[in-house]
Nucleic acid binder design. Structure first.
Lengths: 208, 208, 208, 208
DNA sequence: AATGAATGAGTGTTCATTCAT
DNA sequence: CATGAATGAACACTCATTCAT
């Protein structure tokens, strides 16, 4: 699959992301996609080869660029806590903007059944972990962060908190009285992000 | 749906849980279930009405009992931190034992598409939140916990961390060198649980 | 696939034989079959598993019984030439009655592409060849038949002549002025059969 | 359809012949052809109008020239049996070299479904039959051949024997222990041809 | 003259569900 | 009460062909 996608391909990918996010991969038929995208059913197979290949293209299309952002962040001259906070903001923002694909990425692709030809996907995760490690070790070197933290478990806490919130959207809309889509998104960008930052800071800084 | 299920119904539910967890709700056909459970295809519709109703029954069947455990915990005479730690252990254990159903509960059911007739499900969550609130407020009253924490966001951090770890099982097996199913589960019960406890404690206790 | 087929299954097989014979295997869709047989499209897959398996069932269904007829023939007390003539008559009759399936058997199945799970099919051929061999060797022992004939090439001459005639039906209807279906079939039973008998007799008896 | 085909058209025809012979007409898609011939999918429709018209062109392309060979043969000064033998050799060689197209010609085109615009095809057959008739009548006039033979049934015996052998290639490779492609083809050129010649000679010469 | 893009119709198959027994 | 038989709808995908360029 070439990287340069035409308008219709991008349109299909956008629709696919939306529907996959809403109804899951298996729950979305290419008929659904073609109907919403107002294209011929055959187009999906024609452009992407198959439904699975469409998913692969979608993942590649949406996940490019994060690595560069992380590398830029690492090289910034910031205090450790500020850097971690910025990393969290970056993560949440990025994922929240592409929530569809990230939902698929973390739940559809994680299942045993799906064996996508995405060796790169695991690489992305490892690369992200590496970036996080660099930042934390920098903070540890500066004496700001505790040294006995298990770094690979930081990401689950950051992303897990976000995803759990997102997956239980109706519940939290109810509980937190977030009546509009806007107020819900604002809550994520402000309060939820702050909560995660606070949590991670506490975990990294607080001595038991 | 009656609460008293016969052996065959339970057998179906067990198989359904396993397969739903492995392949998702849409990815599992009732043929798959009937084949593994060695029962007639029509049995599922016969006993549960439909595939969706089967899922509902499964959820109800597997989620009963948690509330009682929580109430018992609240009434125990423990230090706030110990109580929270015990709550986390209880959560993780319980969910880890029923990971199949919880995976469905949190990801399948969360989608817009699925509109299960499960008002009780939201009730369960609210009740759980109430229990957590009681414990935390008790700790705040005792001057142990900070007062500016957003309680509804604690659960996402606890459960989200766990789920994110679980959903990326192959990745963490690789990263943490957990080669056997046993070592993986042990890691959850020890290190991951400890990480979550540490995180929540830090969040609740550490003053910014 | 069980040998005891119900009425609808037999009906499907009859229709399938007709259509496969007319339009070939690939040229016939299961929709065609279901339409002509006035059954639901899903029935074919339901009863036979797949289109290919339907073909297998068809072959097995239609080719049973020939072996017994051959064995009976061998044991009859007839002059060698009479026995060969009877064998030819039996072959032609049998194949002419099941021309549909035999056409498929000899042309569809012969292609490289089709790899049916029909080890039995090759066995049938070998068994038939064995029977022919017995009859010819009997004639050779009685000093009636030449001894330098290549027995495996007899069947191609018998069946090949019939099939070539049958495959070029429109041509021979034109050439031989066979205007009705009946006169065409009569020609096969009389003149064509006699031609083949005469040919084989000449081949087996005439000394170069 | 013009008779003067360019290189690309010939290339397409060659590939089409190969694939049609291997997988049948319906079993071969123009995608297959375009892929193997390394040309654009649209080329087939562009050059030949349609898949069916491609088949027509293929037939015309490959069957030209036989008539001339036959006329030359008739005018040769040979003994009747030698002439028939040479005719058989010529037939077998020619068909064996173009087995792909002849297979299609005799089996695909013979079906009711296919209504090719090939009046010429029937003409070719009639012309060939005429040539055969001339040779046989010459032999009868010389008192070498029997007079009660049905001439139109000679061709089915010659070609039918060959085709039946060819269509059951795997069976005869097994039975006759012909392990290589070369030994198989040699067998056709020598033993099978001799068998057919012997058969026809016996039929034409032997008095009942 | 040649082709990449696109399409509607059709492919075999599987789906969850119903129903007569 | 339980189930084998049956079904219409939907599934992902491939087909031969068309058409603007």
């Amino acid at each position: 699959m070439k990287n340069d996608l035409n308008d219709k391909q991008i349109q299909i990918l956008e629709v696919a992301e939306k529907l996959f996010a809403e109804k899951g991969f298996d729950g979305t038929s290419i008929r659904d996609i073609s109907k919403v995208a107002k294209i011929n059913i055959a187009m999906v197979s024609y452009y992407f080869g198959s439904k699975e290949k469409l998913l692969e293209s979608l993942v590649l299309f949406k996940t490019s660029g994060l690595k560069e952002q992380l590398i830029n962040l690492i090289e910034e001259n910031l205090e450790p806590v500020a850097k971690i906070n910025k990393l969290i903001t970056l993560y949440i923002n990025r994922i929240n903007c592409n929530r569809g694909i990230y939902r698929i990425l973390h739940f559809e692709l994680a299942s045993k059944k799906r064996v996508l030809e995405l060796p790169s996907f695991s690489e992305i995760k490892k690369s992200n972990l590496k970036s996080l490690e660099l930042i934390i070790k920098e903070g540890q070197a500066k004496g700001v962060f505790r040294k006995d933290v298990i770094i690979p478990l930081i990401t689950p806490t950051i992303l897990g908190t976000y995803f759990h919130f997102q997956m239980n959207k109706p519940f939290f809309e109810d509980i937190l009285n977030l009546k509009t889509e806007e107020s819900y998104n604002t809550y994520i960008r402000t309060d939820l992000t702050k909560h995660i930052q606070q949590t991670i800071k506490a975990l990294l800084v607080y001595e038991n």
